[in-house]
């Protein structure tokens, strides 16, 4: 058996254990080193199986998608009612209110999408709550208390969604009859309300 033949035979018998392979390996240090190296690689490969950790945003996205698709259903526990009522109730109320306000803003936009015409260009200039002021601080406080490890992810997402709202609003202001722009604005508000919903769920007992 030549070196080339040995190499070709390794595809079928990987560990060099046929009599022909063994005979060649006994007399050929280069091929012997090759088989050793391949064994080293195979042994190390198993270490790659769980080598990497996904960033927190992966679970964040999964959770949002699960809620959106209705796969997660509320599982309320029978915890202390007093605790529920008196621990952080203000924050929860504010967050809930903010979410409702966001939904209302979205509905307002949606209604206008149904009725607005070219002649009503000015109608869309009705002021919509500034998303940056919409109890974002309360949301972040709520997250800090109930899901501190997710704070950075929420903060980044909140910033991003606020930018989306601002951009979409600018597009709507520029082209009030642009269906895509209005839909984008509605979607952006919906997105923000999802974030608030997530925050509320995290605060459940």
């Amino acid at each position: 058996m030549t070196c080339v033949e040995l190499q070709e035979s390794l595809a079928e018998v990987e560990d060099g254990t046929t009599p022909e392979q063994r005979a060649h390996l006994r007399t050929c240090p280069a091929c012997s080193a090759l088989v050793n190296d391949l064994n080293v690689i195979v042994a190390a490969a198993g270490g790659l199986q769980e080598a990497d950790e996904p960033s927190p945003r992966v679970w964040n996205s999964i959770e949002i998608a699960l809620r959106r698709e209705g796969l997660i259903r509320p599982q309320r526990t029978t915890g202390s009612l007093a605790h529920t009522l008196f621990t952080g109730w203000t924050g929860r109320w504010l967050v809930s209110a903010a979410a409702m306000l966001l939904v209302a803003a979205g509905v307002l936009i949606h209604d206008r999408m149904q009725t607005n015409t070219v002649s009503e260009r000015t109608a869309f200039s009705t002021p919509i709550p500034n998303p940056s002021d919409l109890n974002d601080n309360d949301l972040m406080q709520e997250i800090a208390v109930n899901a501190p490890t997710m704070r950075a992810a929420y903060e980044a997402n909140l910033q991003q969604v606020n930018e989306s709202i601002r951009d979409a609003q600018a597009m709507v202001n520029e082209s009030p009859n642009d269906e895509d722009a209005r839909r984008s604005l509605l979607d952006a508000y919906h997105q923000k309300s999802l974030l608030f919903e997530l925050a509320m769920d995290r605060s459940l007992p």
């Binding site: 960033s55 927190p56 945003r57 992966v58 964040n60 996205s61 949002i64 998608a65 950075a152 992810a153 980044a156 997402n157 991003q160 969604v161 989306s164 997105q191």
Partner: peptide
């Protein structure tokens, strides 16, 4: 950190 495929 962005929610991929959504907020990003």
């Amino acid at each position: 950190m962005l929610i991929p495929g959504m907020l990003g």
